[in-house]
Amino acid sequence: MKKLLTGTALAVCMTSPALAEGTLNLYVWSDSIAPDLIEKFGEEYDITVNVDGYTSNEDLLTKLQAGASGYDISAPSHHFLRIMIDEGLLENFDAKELDAFNQVDERWRNQWWDETQEYSIPMAYGTAGFAVNTAEYDGPTDSMKYFFEPGEDLSGRIALLSYPDEVIGAAQLYLGVPFCSEDSSEMKRVLDLLMAQKEHVAAYSSDNIEGRLGSGEVAAHFWWDGTMTKALRSVDNLEYAMPKEGLVGWMDSWVIPKGAPNRENAIKFIEFMSTPENATAQMNYYAHSSPLELIEADLVYTQEKAPALYPTVPVEMSRTCSPKAQDLVTRVWTQLLQ
């Protein structure tokens, strides 16, 4: 029986078009990795690369918690990375011993989400805030006030994301409430702010932000710095706000999920993506800032061309909320959309 199965498996392998040395299964943010880099990696190492995408950290965490995912590489944001390490969902691959680690900018090494830098190599960072379509709105954007307490000109023409994570963070920055607050009276203020904003909101949706804001369906949208920068390739008139209250920061890192079937290939991939040449090509595609050493001369998204990536206001990194704080976040969101 076993022989028969092996035979069938072999036959299936033989008939698949790419007969490569090995495989590598990526589970990363949708559309986040430069396709030509994946192709180049596959050819250089004779590895078949499969790419699946997720669109929220919650999706990724849920999938890894559900058990053997079969994935070799993922890229959670820092505050989820911390949970995944603590919950034993990641492989310790002694990341600090890799060549890739030496490419990482000093200020992004050994942060609280992976102090010993054994589980992760940073790959991209950025902020979340709001962007406006300047053809539809020419008012000021230097405060969150215009977004959370919109006047006549933005009423009914703003949109947020369909999940709470960074939206609540931005509201907390505006109100001066600490991230992951466990104080229910503070979180009630966050709810009151969002409730009052709701009547001016057109949509709570994380899909098709580019189309919604670019077409002028809405005039202001909660968004990420790099995603907006990337959208500038096809849409004009987009501007990322620099509110004086600050922006919500995040950092995505390569990790290897526990029990990854192709651990060695995963390490090869991380090393490959972290060389200055490839890291530059990756940033030119992804349009989010890179924490790695780059070849400045080849960089497309310079401060001049992509001001959104070079914030002029304080950036407050998201935190890993305690279960109590997370329950308050969920309560705010459920009551907002009940």
């Binding site: 919650e58 965490l61 999940y163 909101v201 709570y204």
Partner: peptide, 20 residues
């Protein structure tokens, strides 16, 4: 516009951000 939650989104929220 997702302004009013439906049961599908509610279940999704509990498995995702709600961690419940």
């Amino acid at each position: 516009g997702g302004k009013q939650m439906m049961m599908g989104s509610l279940i999704q929220l509990q498995f995702g951000g709600g961690r419940n």
